[in-house]
Each structure stands twice: as C-alpha cells, then as structure tokens.
Design a protein around this nucleic acid. Structure first.
Lengths: 237, 237
DNA sequence: ATCATTATTGCCCAATTGGACTAAAATAAC
DNA sequence: GTTATTTTAGTCCAATTGGGCAATAATGAT
C-alpha cells in the first residue's frame, strides 16, 4: 500500500538541463522570493519549487540559506556592475553634466529592470544581521565611492547645489528607484504599469530635470524662473 | 509526574496594566516586527513576546494576523495624519514656498521617527496581496491628493520645475525617507547614526535645498550659477 | 452573594520550516 | 566494463508556525 507507483529515489532520467542552468534558475528564484518576502519569509521549498527542483538540491549547491542569499546577491551585483560600467565607459570623454545625465538614465533603467535590488536593500537594512554588514561592504561602499567623485565635480562646476554628498547620494538613488520599488502601489493607486518603457523614460526625464537645472546658456538677462523652468521641461530633459 | 508546579491556567493575578495599554503594546510590537521582517516573517509568538503577553491574546484582541496588521497600520496612519496636520495648520497663511519648506521638514522628521512606515510600504508594495490594495486606498491616495495640490501651486509659481506630478511625489517622498529607511546601511557604511537629531535636520536642509532653488531676490545680474548654488547652501536652507 | 462578561493563560494541533541523511541515475575516469 | 564522482530526488526530524480551545482570575452587573 505504501509503494504503488512511487518514483525511484535518485537522479532522474532527464538530465537535459545543464548544471549551470539549474544553478542559475535557483538563483533567479531565490532573488525573486527573497525580494518579495524577505529572508525569513522566503521558504527554501518555495524557491526550489519556483526553480522546478527538489528542495534538497539547494543544500547541495549552496550549503545553507545564508549562503544561497549571498550567492544570489553576488550575481546581482555582478550584473549591476556590468550594466553601469557600459554607461561610464560610453561617456568617458563627455562634459561632466552630459555624462551625469546619461549615467542617471542608465541607472533608472537598471532600477526599473531590477526592482528586487532596492527591495532587498530596504528589507535587510535593519537590525544587525550579518547581511547588512555584507551589503554595506560589498555594494554600498564601492558604489558610493564612484558616485561621490562625479557629484563633487558637478557641485564644483555649479551644476548641482552644494549639499552634503551622503544626503545627495541617498536622495538621488531613492528618487531613481522609488516608483519601481513601489510598482505594486503605483499600479493600485494610479493604474499605471511602471514596467512600461515609456513610463521608465518619463521617470528618468523627471529625475534628471529635478537634479540638473542649468541655465539655457550665456549671460542674457533671462526670463522669469517660472518660464525658465517650464521651457526646460519642454525640451525633454 | 506531569504536574509539579505548573502554573494554573487562566488569567493571572496581576492585572495592573489597563487593557488599552496592552492593546497598544501589542500594536507597537506588531508594527516593529512587521516592518523588520515583513508580514510572513513576523511570527505572532514573537510579537506577543515583545509585548510581554501570551500569543493567544493576540487572537483574542485581533481575530487573526491580517487583522492585526491592518489595526497596526491604521493606528500608524492616525499618528501620521495628526503629525502632518499640525504642519499644515501652523502654516495656513504663509506664502506657498515657505509653507512647503516647513511641511517638508515636518515630513522628514516623521520619517526619521517612524522608519517602520516606509519599510512596510516597500515590503508590501509587491504582488497582489490584499494589503497592497488596502495601502493604496487608505494611505497613498489621500496623502498624494493633498500633496499634489501644493506641488502644482509651486510649479505654477515657478518654484519647482514643471515635472509630472506623480514622479515628483515619488521622488520627493523617497528622498525624504531614504536615509532613515536604510539607517542600518548608513550606520555600517558611514558609521553615522541617522536617529541623531542633528543628522535629521541636516537631511531636511539637504532635501529642501535640492527641491527649492529660488533666486536670492530681485533682478540684479547675479553671480555665476556655481557661486549662487554655494551661497544658497551656506544660508542653512 | 451570585452571575455574566472580559482579559488572560496554558495546552493542543496540523502544517510548514530548514536541514540531515539516504538512494540512485548520469557522467567521467580508469 | 568497472569504479568514482557528480547531480538529482525522496524521506525523516526537531523546531516553529498560525490558529483552536478550555480553564480561570478579575471585573462589573444584579
């Protein structure tokens, strides 16, 4: 009565999927559930199910839950670095303001495509779990270092108000991420889908326009600040 | 053998604490743990322990976990409304820019004192739980309605660039909340305690200066935009 | 004084959790 | 072909989970 058609134990006949693909599927699933439910809330078995794999396999490839989390985030960082690096490289010779605008837009697009990123940051940035320390060391510090230099340059040239750099960095990145991190809320409150490409660009435009408010050019007496502000936005960015 | 000194079942002798205080302690604990670990991650028993109460009592006062969550958030909203209302009332006659600055500072202080608020918004703004819908209806929509009118006025008078209102609201509130929501990260990455009063005011200054960049006054030719930006910040806000 | 209601605890349960261990097929090494 | 290694699945376990329920002291009503 116990064994009628119980599937035999070990490795199944279909090893069509190469190992790396399996590992990647596991990390994808882990990232998704960790970001949606937090570390404790994400069950290993659910991650396994999402990756179409038995839950014991997670422990085979990644020795425990904390390791799985770290591996998933490591891969995310690698992707982010790759994405942002193209932005920095592509603008190497540019005047600093133009460069900043391009990089901002790049960043907004990344936030839109990877809302898990910001969500995990928020979920973990509390208490004293090892994970906060890991994030601060692996992600926040390197990222902020590069950004701080760029922002300092912009302030020195008067393209940005002279604010405490740390505040500026936090305001800037939060402003970039916010509508995507809160995409569910936006959908319910406004009926708008923030994964739509047009919405993404609109938000990038808005962020850039909020931060950089250059004069049109030259020393002409200039119109009222109201008219200036309006004209600016009409230009697209 | 089973019963040696087993405490008798029912209500204990010490009913020193009035009921309302118990209920309030439960909501405090619930808010704290929901914000730190998310809905699924927060265990009823842990909430109970934090409120120094047996876990069955939660089910007596609030029939189930979802109800407890809703009650905790309702009380949070009430507090927020009360806090912000004083800001709005206190500035009723003021010119719109000054009013905006005071209200912004008010909001930053609220964010600093109640980082749970933003953290819960982020954790829930995903998927299609009933909780997202509840938040959008109860919190986001009313709050944004009031803010939108104020921002529209500021744009019309040229104190803010003319951006899509929705984007502006999300950028603005995220920028206000960010360093407090991520306080753990800030502590690890910068060694700074964002609950410190001076840091709170510094961040409020930064936010205000980033958003409002009025001319000093009058139509004099004016210094370079670099000098202007610098002078501005030196003024405090 | 008696009785109903309120506020609280202790104990029970079925389901779920992270993890340990075992079984076995696929693959590579010889 | 045999053997070792890699990769997978199934089973068992102790702990924890949300929720159900009975017991009982405090409080209030009569």
């Amino acid at each position: 009565m116990t064994a009628v058609t119980t599937r035999p134990r070990g490795r199944p006949a279909r090893t069509a999927r190469p190992v790396e693909e399996t590992r990647s599927a596991i990390l994808d699933a882990a990232l998704k559930l960790f970001s949606e439910r937090g570390f404790e809330g994400a069950a290993m078995r659910d991650i396994a199910a999402l990756a179409s794999v038995e839950h014991s396999l997670l422990r085979y490839h990644y020795s425990d839950k904390a390791t799985l989390w770290r591996e998933a985030l490591s891969r995310l960082i690698t992707h982010m670095n790759a994405h942002m690096a193209t932005g920095w490289r592509a603008t190497e010779g540019m005047p600093v303001v133009e460069r900043f605008k391009v990089i901002l837009r790049h960043y907004v697009r990344y936030c839109a495509r990877h809302p898990e990123h910001a969500r995990i940051m928020v979920q973990e940035a509390v208490g004293d779990s090892d994970r906060v320390a890991w994030i601060a060391e692996q992600i926040v510090r390197p990222q902020h270092r590069g950004l701080a230099r760029l922002l300092q340059g912009l302030m020195d040239q008067g393209h940005l108000p002279r604010l405490p750099i740390r505040s500026l960095i936090y305001m800037l990145s939060a402003a970039a991420q916010s509508p995507f991190t809160l995409a569910g809320e936006v959908r319910h409150a406004y009926g708008v889908d923030m994964s739509d490409a047009a919405e993404i660009e609109r938000h990038a435009d808005a962020l850039i326009a909020l931060l950089i408010r250059d004069e049109v050019a030259g020393p002409e007496p200039g119109p009222s600040s109201a008219q200036r502000a309006m004209g600016k936005t009409m230009l697209g960015l």
